[in-house]
Amino acid sequence: RPMNAFMVWARIHRPALAKANPAANNAEISVQLGLEWNKLSEEQKKPYYDEAQKIKE
């Protein structure tokens, strides 16, 4: 299954978030990633939607 825009973004940002929160488990990191993603504007998300579309094609 191809990655969606959030997954493209999260793949880039997960390592830094995990390093900054070494005690957090994957579920907690995923929740935090979701919160951070939701704070982004549509303009900030656009490159990730574009990349996800390329992956689908």
Rank of each mutant, 00 (worst) to 15 (best):
G34M: 15
A23L: 14
A52C: 04
E57A: 07
Q32S: 06
R11Y: 13
R14Q: 05
A24Y: 12
Y49V: 08
K54D: 06
M7A: 12
L35S: 07
P2D: 12
L40V: 01
R1A: 14
I55Y: 08
A18H: 10
Y48S: 01
L35K: 11
A18D: 04
I12L: 08
R14H: 05
G34A: 15
A20C: 04
N38D: 12
E36T: 10
Y49F: 12
I12K: 08
A52H: 03
E36S: 07
K54L: 11
L17Q: 03
N26K: 12
A52G: 03
K19N: 05
K39M: 07
G34I: 15
D50R: 10
I55L: 14
A52M: 05
K56G: 06
A5P: 05
W37N: 00
P15H: 09
I29T: 02
G34P: 02
P2G: 09
K46P: 01
I12C: 04
R11D: 15
A20W: 07
L35E: 10
A10W: 05
A18W: 08
K45N: 01
R11C: 06
P15E: 13
K19F: 10
E51Q: 10
E57Q: 09
Y48M: 01
A23Y: 14
P22W: 03
K46D: 02
A20V: 07
K54H: 10
R11E: 15
L35H: 10
A27D: 13
Y49H: 08
M3E: 09
E43T: 09
F6I: 01
E42T: 13
A5I: 02
K54S: 09
Y49R: 12
R14K: 09
D50P: 02
S41T: 13
L40C: 02
Y49T: 05
P2L: 13
A20N: 06
A18S: 12
G34Q: 13
Q44A: 11
E28P: 02
Y48D: 00
A23P: 02
H13K: 09
A10D: 07
N25H: 06
R14F: 11
R11V: 14
W37H: 00
W9E: 00
A20S: 09
M3L: 11
A5H: 02
L35F: 09
N25C: 04
E43F: 09
L35M: 10
F6E: 02
P47F: 09
L33Q: 02
N21R: 06
D50N: 07
A27V: 09
R11A: 15
N25P: 07
N38K: 13
A18M: 15
A27N: 10
N4D: 14
R14C: 09
P15Y: 07
A52R: 02
A23E: 12
W9S: 00
A18N: 05
E36Y: 10
I12Q: 06
L35V: 13
D50Q: 11
Q32T: 06
N21G: 02
P22E: 03
P22K: 04
A52P: 02
W9F: 15
Q44P: 00
K46M: 08
K45S: 01
